[in-house]
Design a protein around this nucleic acid. Structure first.
Lengths: 166, 166
DNA sequence: TCACATTCGTTGCAAGAGCAACTAGATCGC
DNA sequence: GCGATCTAGTTGCTCTTGCAACGAATGTGA
């Protein structure tokens, strides 16, 4: 029929996007799957949101860090981090320390209660990660991490930051 | 003993999760970077949201598909897809076709206008992807895709679906 | 020193997303 | 054939998030 051949012509016209082979789609689907699974740990058991969880982990690892650092590092909007910090502060999990050298910014720090959550949460998160990674051989894991980093660095350079290709 | 308590203290102070080596974090950061960059194409130029863009691309590739298929495949909530379809329909970009065999579901299809957007958008998306992937050698790209798929399949099996380990 | 631009962080507002309840239709078991 | 159960999709409600405007502090250049 006329309709069918019209469709066929359109279809054959050009090789367009194959979703299952399209990098941003695949990476985002994988990210959603891991985020959903991980949230079972920090959300249902400790009442943390994703930004909250990230702040806790960052401060657990780095001791002191500004909201801006956390936002940039995790590709989150500064307002997202600001609100998450406010919640954690109200719950008594993080403290703000004024920075005398630059009074615009505040150094964030875990309280003992915040660190207790981090210590309780971290092993479970690592166990989850291990479970996830168990499908990959050790060398595959290494390879994967290397490629993710390479892509990540490159993607950052393509972002809103000053393009150095001028 | 002093030695033992020192060890214990050290253990407590150790960073348990290293954010830069934590898979879900890295994957999500990479996903955010690519999604932000890609949205420059479909959002600012065609007024599409992420779900809308995904629906367009899915139907551009598959011709007919249900909302449920699109949601499952892309790990989106069914209400998200439902609302995005409603917007696209109102804009005249997609059509619903009743399925006589099962009248609960509706097959979605691009209108000519919808396909026009797909045809205009796809090459730009592919160009972006190529630019992103240009940091990886061809074999690295292949390896990366294989590993992403492997992890994705495994992550899906760890998800909310019936755990078969019971 | 003084205007101008920039940066960190907060907040009002509106759009987006998840949850749960709901309708409509299909399926299973008896 | 009939009720209980399940599935596809919609919608009200609420919380989250992004954007843009803002205040406060800093930096820059004349």
């Amino acid at each position: 029929m006329a309709r069918r051949s019209a469709l066929r012509k359109q279809e054959e016209a050009q090789p367009l996007v194959i979703l299952e082979e399209f990098l941003p789609y695949r990476v985002n689907v994988l990210a959603a799957l891991t985020a959903n699974a991980l949230s079972q740990i920090y959300e249902k058991r400790f009442g943390l949101t994703i930004p909250g969880w990230r702040i806790i982990v960052t401060l657990g690892q780095y001791e002191f860090r500004t909201a801006r650092d956390i936002a940039n590092h995790g590709v989150m909007h500064k307002s997202t981090v600001s609100r998450a910090v406010a919640v954690l502060e109200k719950r008594g999990l993080v403290l703000r320390k004024a920075n005398a050298d630059d009074r615009r910014e505040e150094l964030l720090e875990l309280t003992p209660e915040g660190r207790a959550i981090y210590v309780a949460l971290a092993p479970e998160a690592l166990a989850f990660e291990e479970r996830l990674l168990s499908v990959l051989a050790p060398e595959e894991q290494k390879t994967f991490f290397g490629l993710v980093d390479k892509l990540g660095r490159h993607a950052r350079s393509l972002g809103p930051e000053p393009g150095e290709e001028a």
